[in-house]
Computed example of a mutant assay.
Amino acid sequence: MVKKQKFWITLMAALLVIAGWGHQAPKAAAASGFYVSGTKLYDSTGKAFVMRGVNDPHSWYKNDLSKAIPAIAATGSNTVRIVLSNGTQYTKDDLASVKNIIALVNQYKMIAVLEVHDATGKDDYTSLDNAVNYWISIKDALIGKEDRVIVNIANEWYGTWNGSVWADGYKKAIPKLRNAGIKNTLIVDAAGWGQYPQSIVDYGQSVLAADSLKNTMFSIHMYEYAGKDDATVKANMENVLNKGLALIIGEFGGQHINGDVDEAAIMKYGKEKGVGWLAWSWYGNSSDLSYLDMATGPNGSLTSFGNTVVNGTNGIKQTSVKAGIF
């Protein structure tokens, strides 16, 4: 009797499995690269990814790469934003050099955010279009690396505090990149040298809609205007997130030309709201902006600001988690 019961139980279980086989949900396939969904960025393993890292001034210190990248990795950073040039203002970083940068960053288990710096503060569309054409010219370095390379189209393009013209520019730029076969997650800096987040609040949804892949996120640069105090930092983050847009703080310092920056608030709300941030910058700022240096050289010791960002409350050491591919 016991044997018969076991037989029938086994048979019924097998029949149920067979009957339900066609109705089982297929196993989710891994994505080919980073992707934006709502207010979050996800890596190719499907894990939410929150950037924690620094900006590396590579284009002005090209010979320091092999020193700077390991030193940045040693902070625990999961991301490094690399300053590149398309040659219109600074010395061009060619295809071979960009491939080398990506390989080195990857070796040290960080995600590379690449940006073109020549368009900084410019208002003319040609400057933005030059950045787009640069990405297209080096797309062989980007295609196939969507799981480890993110494209910050143009650093602080559109210096004027005007959202509509800023948006019109990106509504042309993004489709051009997509039509060229570039599928990497894109980052768009706010207008007003990155410090006018109202441009994202007012027009970010329409800029995202111009991306056929809906794989664009937005960046505020928090200095003395966008990051001046706790209330401003909190409101600027929330106002973008409340629009259903993905956000990072692509640059921030501890102070700037016209006032203080509340870096503690940036790190606090970055953790609380799951917003990524990348401090400016590892080293090499001009003497009048040396307070922005995080280290005394490409592989030098940490400055006071650097120590705050790396070892402070809500800093890199406490909050950085590597991308799923690593």
Rank of each mutant, 00 (worst) to 15 (best):
K172T: 05
D211A: 07
V50Q: 04
R148C: 15
I150L: 12
S206T: 00
G259N: 07
H117F: 03
V132Y: 05
V36K: 03
V2N: 15
A226L: 09
K139P: 05
L11Y: 04
G204S: 08
G250S: 08
K62M: 14
Y291I: 15
F7V: 10
I220D: 04
A191R: 00
T303E: 09
E146H: 03
Q318N: 12
G87L: 04
S66L: 13
Y223L: 04
A71R: 03
K62S: 06
N106R: 02
K145D: 14
K214Q: 02
V50A: 02
G312V: 09
D168T: 15
V116F: 06
M294I: 08
N130D: 07
K322Y: 14
K67L: 13
I9N: 15
V240R: 00
K139C: 05
I266T: 00
Y42W: 09
G144P: 04
T126N: 07
N236I: 01
G244W: 01
L65Y: 14
T79E: 05
S301F: 08
K139Q: 12
V188C: 12
P197E: 09
V240C: 00
A19Y: 09
Y196G: 14
D211T: 02
L213C: 11
G250C: 09
I316R: 15
S287Q: 13
K109Q: 10
T303C: 07
F34K: 05
E263T: 15
Y42D: 05
Y283K: 04
G33K: 02
D288E: 13
T319P: 05
E156M: 04
W280K: 12
A190Q: 01
P70S: 11
D124F: 04
W166D: 00
E238G: 06
V2H: 15
A154M: 04
G270P: 02
E238I: 07
V275A: 00
T120C: 06
F305Y: 14
A279P: 04
F34M: 10
Y225E: 11
H58F: 15
D211E: 04
A103H: 03
A14F: 09
V80C: 00
N86R: 01
T185P: 07
N242Q: 06
Y269M: 01
K62E: 12
A68I: 07
T160W: 00
A96P: 03
N184E: 08
A167P: 08
S320Y: 11
K4N: 06
I102F: 11
S219Y: 06
Q24H: 10
K172M: 12
F218N: 08
A30G: 11
I220Q: 08
L241V: 00
D262N: 11
N179Y: 12
I153L: 10
T308Q: 15
N63M: 12
K27G: 10
L104D: 07
N299K: 03
I220K: 11
T313L: 15
G324I: 14
N162M: 10
L41Y: 04
I187D: 01
N63Y: 12
A235L: 10
N155C: 01
G250D: 02
G46Q: 08
D93P: 08
T308G: 12
D211P: 02
G274E: 06
W8M: 09
L289H: 09
L104T: 06
A96E: 07
T39P: 05
V2E: 15
R178Y: 15
W193F: 13
N162V: 14
I220E: 07
G270S: 02
